[in-house]
Design a protein around this nucleic acid. Sequence first.
DNA 1: GAATACCTGAGTATTTCACTCGGATTAGCG
DNA 2: CGCTAATCCGAGTGAAATACTCAGGTATTC
Lengths: 155, 155
Amino acid sequence: MRLTTRGRYAVTAMLDLALHYEHGPVSLAEIAKRQGISQSYLEQLFARLRRNRLVDGLRGPGGGYKLGRPGDTISVADVIDAVNESVDATRCGGQRNCQDEHRCLTHDLWEDLSTQIRDFLSGVSLDQLVKRQSVQTVHRFQEKRVSDLQTEASI
Amino acid sequence: MRLTTRGRYAVTAMLDLALHYEHGPVSLAEIAKRQGISQSYLEQLFARLRRNRLVDGLRGPGGGYKLGRPGDTISVADVIDAVNESVDATRCGGQRNCQDEHRCLTHDLWEDLSTQIRDFLSGVSLDQLVKRQSVQTVHRFQEKRVSDLQTEASI
DNA sequence: GAATACCTGAGTATTTCACTCGGATTAGCG
DNA sequence: CGCTAATCCGAGTGAAATACTCAGGTATTC
């Protein structure tokens, strides 16, 4: 099992989309600036998100991305799956052939762990995250910071 | 966060020790054969397990390893920690400086996930694993296989 | 003192990650 | 139409980690 920046970035970016849903499509440049993620890297992640119908891309000026379906129907697990990070903890990918065609001693343990993690991440939707106190706090801080940078640049 | 072969091998090997506790020290050669793990690689893992006092090494002929303390006081989390695989899911390692010295949007989510995983793995002891039906089944199968190989070789 | 095991450190092929770069395509606007 | 803003797409790359191997040293038992 692995959970790395890829999955974390993807969830963060999707949450950014959810937070700015009313303002129309959000460009990757905005997300990159707000969340401190490389824009080219975001492009790769969004290619995967798009293939999984989690986002819709709109080209041209004023374009950007928006959620492919309502935020309460997208779970964190969906996002992580989309960017190809399996949350499977077994070595064999659930195939039970971990030790030359047989189950290894600890196969069931890792299977249980996988279920545990999957249930947890499936139980959290983007909308639930948006409503969280901690997310709102960071969200407002980021908005302020971006506008600060803009006024600073205009001086 | 990562959970790879290293952590899985370590838990499997520790469980093997627990299963053969009555028969005195278990050599790495036995574990390697039974569990299908490279012996040299096991040596590296056991160096870490030894440093963390999870096992005692006994040199010389008839030597091997035994559990450093009773199996009901060793959790799966202990073993994974010992081989240096952090189960922390945050990017910052809990430091809250994930986005240039500030918390990132999803920091708390990953912290919750880390707690979830840690609680699960801390709640499972080696003794509990030994008692599991699935472990006993695989255990007996492995014993049979090893003795089959021995009689086969003696022909 | 020979065999058996633990112990140690160095090296290495492969994979993955986290990114960059260059360019193509599409759409809105004057 | 042409400019520009944006999504798209594919290839490449440096650094790190993983999962090993190999060569030897050291303790212990018979």
